[in-house]
Design a protein around this nucleic acid. Structure first.
Lengths: 146, 146
DNA sequence: TTGAAATAGTTGCATAACTAACTATATGTC
DNA sequence: GACATATAGTTAGTTATGCAACTATTTCAA
């Protein structure tokens, strides 16, 4: 596979999300190989719910950096697969609290294990200091743009 | 906007493509503000054609890190907008050569200028050494996964 | 307290992504 | 030369993304 674009100075690869795509695609493949039928997008939503169950959809937008329609549809699909349930909030009737089902809770350990393995595989030959710099740069990019 | 996920050690933000998404979205917005109606995905295809016109679709797959159906449809849409044209190859009748139209050539300077501005904006406070490390890490991630 | 503005969520439309299955052409081996 | 295999491209089906426009509820201010 050619990596012409990647060698350029402009870092347009960031714009095209290519490194991210490669890692995400590999994780998706690893999910499939393990017989798990969730997408990485769905996983990224579940990931935040495992940390804190019962978030509002808006809160999920903030955490996953997606817009509201994207979250609406991701939750639609997660509901179809019976992995989450929308519960109306008692304090504010505009809000849906998104709650994990038991089957979603069962997915947590397995998928995070796979995600960690995938990241390890992706980051072979990259040292901790470099990872730290990448994280800092990504953080600055956010702060600059959002 | 929350950046919880981003502060974590696991670098899952790479999987979710969040830094890339932010930059790409901003460039898309800058295209729109400038009255340009192309998507960043289309732009990334044009970008390679500006460097070398008349590539095959397969070659575009390699350069843009997309699969064949994705390129097929991107070219479909670019053809609708009269920015490229498929030309049958004389040497190999399986191959389509993707050729720029005059209006596509006119887009080059303007859009690359906007892309450079967007990258500059995204990378405020990031020094050259850090950029170099990010590029190296991305390259290693590719080599590890592809 | 009433009416404007803000916030939470949904829906419609267009574009784009991946997989799997397909057609057509080219290559390489017996 | 013929048949298996590889390569280039397309199509179908599902999921996801962005924007704009919409409803419902809450908040805030005159």
């Amino acid at each position: 596979m050619s990596n012409n674009q990647f060698k350029r100075g402009e870092l347009y690869s960031v714009i095209n999300g290519m490194a991210s795509t490669a890692v995400a695609r590999r994780l998706q493949k690893n999910f499939r190989l393990a017989g798990l039928e969730i997408t990485i997008e769905q996983w990224s939503v579940l990931y935040h719910l495992w940390k804190q169950d019962g978030m509002s959809q808006q809160e999920l937008c903030n955490r996953t950096f997606r817009d509201k329609p994207s979250i609406t549809r991701l939750i639609d699909n997660l509901e179809k697969q019976k992995l989450v349930k929308r519960m109306p909030s008692k304090e504010d009737r505009r809000i849906n609290l998104v709650c994990l089902t038991e089957s979603a809770k069962l997915l947590q350990d397995k998928t995070i294990e796979l995600a960690n393995q995938t990241m390890d595989e992706a980051l072979i030959g990259v040292n901790k200091n470099e990872i730290e710099i990448v994280k800092q740069v990504f953080q600055k990019v956010y702060d600059n743009l959002l």
